[in-house]
């Protein structure tokens, strides 16, 4: 389950909790499919935030509780990609441009894996 603001609503998200107005009338049921077009109506009802099923509407799941900038790329992940690209680049050990391409690729691949491991 994940709390989002109205502006974050996307087509295909699934509502995780029943929604009622202040008189207890059911507005939307748990499991209802959300549409971005609902934003204005929900806003008129005074609703600012809703709970959706994590992973619905194209989201990958719960948002991790850490800042993306704090994700650490470990030496083990870097070493994994160094090994992976070693054979591909083995014909150009001293070529400056190919070494640049290799190091930028390793850094990006390793960063992506670290982000994925952290839940992003």
């Amino acid at each position: 389950m994940r709390k989002i603001s109205l502006k974050e609503i996307q087509d295909g998200m699934v509502l995780a909790q029943e929604m009622q107005d202040d008189k207890g009338r059911v507005l939307l049921k748990k499991g209802d499919l959300l549409r971005s077009a609902y934003k204005s109506k929900l806003s008129q009802w005074g609703i600012e935030e809703i709970f959706i099923v994590a992973g619905s509407g194209g989201l990958d799941g719960e948002t991790p509780n850490i800042n993306p900038e704090d994700v650490k790329v470990t030496t083990a992940i870097i070493a994994k990609y160094e090994r992976l690209l070693e054979q591909k680049f083995c014909d150009f050990p001293d070529n400056v441009l190919m070494n640049t391409i290799k190091s930028v690729a390793i850094s990006n691949l390793a960063h992506k894996e670290a982000m994925k491991n952290a839940g992003f």
Partner: peptide, 20 residues
């Protein structure tokens, strides 16, 4: 083509990378 091979997307038909 070279960037894509460096990033290991799919299969370019061999295990090498052309020189830029």
């Amino acid at each position: 083509d070279i960037i894509c091979r460096a990033l290991n997307f799919g299969d370019g038909g061999d295990k090498k990378i052309p020189k830029i």
